[in-house]
C-alpha cells in the first residue's frame, strides 16, 4: 500500500467511525447505561508506521467531534488523546517488539494478542472517559460499573469490526 492510499484510508476511517458513533451507536444504550464506544477503532488501527504527532492530533479532534454531539465538553477528547499517546506501550505489551518492525498488522495477529490489546486500550479509554463525564468522585461505583460493562461491549464490537473490515492480505 503506498502512502497516498494510506492517507485516504485514514481520513475515510476518521469520518466513518465518527458518523457510525454519533448517528448509530450513540442511540444504543444497553441495560440503561452501557453505550459502546466504537470510535476507538480509528485510534487502534491507525497505521503502525504512521506519524505519532498526527495520531495524537487526529485522535484529539475525533474525540472533540464526539464531544460536540454528546455535550460532554472535552471528556471524549481527553480520553482519546490519552489512548493515542499510550498506544505504543499497549502495542508492545500485547504483541511484543515485533510490531516495531512493521511485520504484523493488528487484525492479522493471533486472536489472544488482539484481545489483550483491544481490551486494555478500551479499559483505559473508558475509565478516563467515564471519570471525566461523571465529574465527581462520589459516583465511583457507577463509574467502575459502566467502565467494565461498557468496555466488554466495546471490545466485542471492535474485535468483530476488525474481522469484518480489514483486508487479510498484506
Amino acid at each position: 500500500m503506498n502512502s497516498s492510499t494510506q492517507w485516504l484510508t485514514v481520513i475515510g476511517r476518521f469520518i466513518a467511525v465518527l458518523l457510525v458513533q454519533v448517528l448509530i451507536v450513540d442511540r444504543i444504550v444497553l441495560f440503561g447505561f452501557a453505550n459502546p464506544m466504537v470510535y476507538c477503532y480509528f485510534i487502534l488501527l491507525y497505521p503502525l508506521s504512521g506519524n505519532r504527532l498526527w495520531l495524537i492530533l487526529s485522535s484529539f479532534s475525533l474525540g472533540l467531534c464526539v464531544d460536540m454531539f454528546n455535550d460532554t465538553g472535552g471528556a471524549h477528547a481527553a480520553a482519546a488523546v490519552f489512548l493515542a499517546w499510550i498506544r505504543p506501550v499497549l502495542l508492545n505489551f500485547a504483541f511484543g517488539v515485533s510490531y516495531q518492525y512493521n511485520t504484523t498488522k493488528v487484525p492479522n495477529a493471533p486472536i489472544g494478542q488482539q484481545i489483550i490489546f483491544v481490551s486494555s486500550a478500551v479499559l483505559i479509554h473508558h475509565l478516563i472517559l467515564f471519570s471525566l463525564e461523571a465529574g465527581s468522585w462520589s459516583y465511583w461505583p457507577l463509574v467502575f460499573k459502566s467502565t467494565f460493562i461498557t468496555a466488554a461491549l466495546s471490545t466485542l464490537i471492535l474485535l468483530s469490526a476488525f474481522q469484518l473490515f480489514s483486508r487479510k492480505t498484506t
Binding site: R52, L53, I56, L57, F60, G63, L64, D67, D71, T72, G73, G74, A75, H76, A77, A78, A79, V81, F82, A84, W85, L132, E133, G135, S136
Partner: peptide, 22 residues
C-alpha cells in the same frame, strides 16, 4: 519530546473543557 508535550497540552485542554461542561 514533542509528542509528549503535545499530548500533555491536548489532554489538559480536554480535561479543562470537560470540567467547564460540569
Amino acid at each position: 519530546n514533542k509528542n509528549f508535550l503535545l499530548f500533555l497540552l491536548l489532554f489538559s485542554f480536554g480535561i479543562s473543557l470537560s470540567q467547564k461542561a460540569h
